[in-house]
């Protein structure tokens, strides 16, 4: 069996040559050995650029929105988290299912690029899993049109994903008293640059126009101050409530290293406790807890 990377290139070439799709979105090698950023291929002869290695970290689902108003069909490589991101976009009617061809990859977790940079290439084998993969509950894609067979070659990575400890950070913060908690979050969000990388990479953030791109609305001023930064943080966290797929991309891309997933996971934990266990993006037919109406709702507003 050929390596996953070879299969990716072969399938991309076939799909483009037969004009079954017009664009293939995957990963390619970046500036350094520990970077495998997104790649957009339209020419079958360019498929050699595609790579599959332990640094194919980026969740590619969000890019579908860039093609939302077009006609072209897109082939998208999906790991577990990418696939859940696609499901979320489909569920929000952000993209037509028939316009995307999903090529699934069973992911055993990607590696931490920043730690890799610090360790150096000679110690590539020691690079730990990315934070976002440590608590991954669904490494395999939950939606796909075809699934590439598992790579058992020399490049195979160990599977280490486990859901244990998924809420450990949340519990740690919950155990703080309100003053400690306030001190913790202010020290984190005082660093926020409001670059909006977290929002822009998030497959749950799919508003056509974001409140934070309308500073003259008066909702959130453009000055970078504690109150505006916190308003941004809380608003975004509440806005993705029930829709966050825990891909961890927001936290990974934050240039300031703010533990954004602790906020998102707190809300997930609360939702689980209030409305029963729910994981966003797993099933197209199951509506998000805050996107449905149920007469057995524990709140009594309907009585």
């Amino acid at each position: 069996m050929s390596s996953l990377q070879e299969q990716m290139r072969t399938r991309a070439r076939e799909l483009l040559s037969k004009k079954e799709v017009q664009v293939v979105i995957g990963w390619e090698k970046g500036t350094f050995w520990y970077l495998s950023p997104p790649a957009f291929i339209t020419d079958p002869d360019d498929c050699e650029r595609l790579v599959w290695d332990e640094f194919c970290t980026n969740n590619l689902a969000k890019y579908l929105l860039d093609y939302k108003l077009g006609e072209e069909k897109i082939a998208l490589f999906v790991k577990g988290c990418d696939a859940r991101g696609v499901n979320r976009l489909l569920q929000d009617n952000q993209f037509q299912r028939e316009r995307v061809y999903l090529i699934g990859i069973n992911c055993s977790g990607v590696k931490d690029g920043r730690r890799a940079a610090a360790l150096g290439e000679a110690r590539r084998a020691e690079v730990p899993l990315a934070e976002k993969c440590l608590y991954c509950t669904h490494p395999g894609p939950v939606i796909y049109d075809e699934l590439l067979q598992e790579d058992r070659g020399a490049g195979a990575r160990e599977a280490a994903a486990t859901a244990e400890g998924r809420f450990a950070m949340v519990e740690k913060i919950e155990a703080m008293n309100p003053d400690e908690r306030y001190a913790f979050w202010t020290s984190q969000y005082d660093r926020c640059l409001r670059c909006y990388a977290c929002r822009n990479i998030c497959p749950a953030c799919n508003c056509r126009e974001c409140i934070f791109d309308r500073s003259q609305s008066g909702w959130c001023g453009k000055q970078m101050s504690r109150s505006e930064n916190q308003f941004f943080a809380i608003t975004r966290a509440m806005h993705v409530a029930g829709r966050c797929i825990e891909c961890g991309e927001c936290e990974r891309v934050c240039p300031e290293g703010i533990p954004i997933m602790a906020l998102n996971k707190k809300i997930i934990k609360d939702l689980n406790e209030l409305f029963g266990e729910y994981e966003a993006g797993l099933d197209l037919e199951v509506r998000p807890p805050l996107g449905q109406y149920d007469l057995n709702d524990p709140d009594e507003f309907h009585k």
Binding site: P38, R194, C195, Y196, A197, Q216, K222, V253, P255
Partner: peptide, 28 residues
């Protein structure tokens, strides 16, 4: 078009850049 495909349109590059100097003037 090609080079901007993967760009997320975030401001991390400009805000971490030592020479980017664009500003807005607003009131409170």
């Amino acid at each position: 078009t090609a080079v901007s495909r993967k760009c997320l349109g975030c401001g991390a590059c400009t805000y971490l850049c030592p020479t980017c100097h664009c500003f807005d003037i607003q009131g409170e």
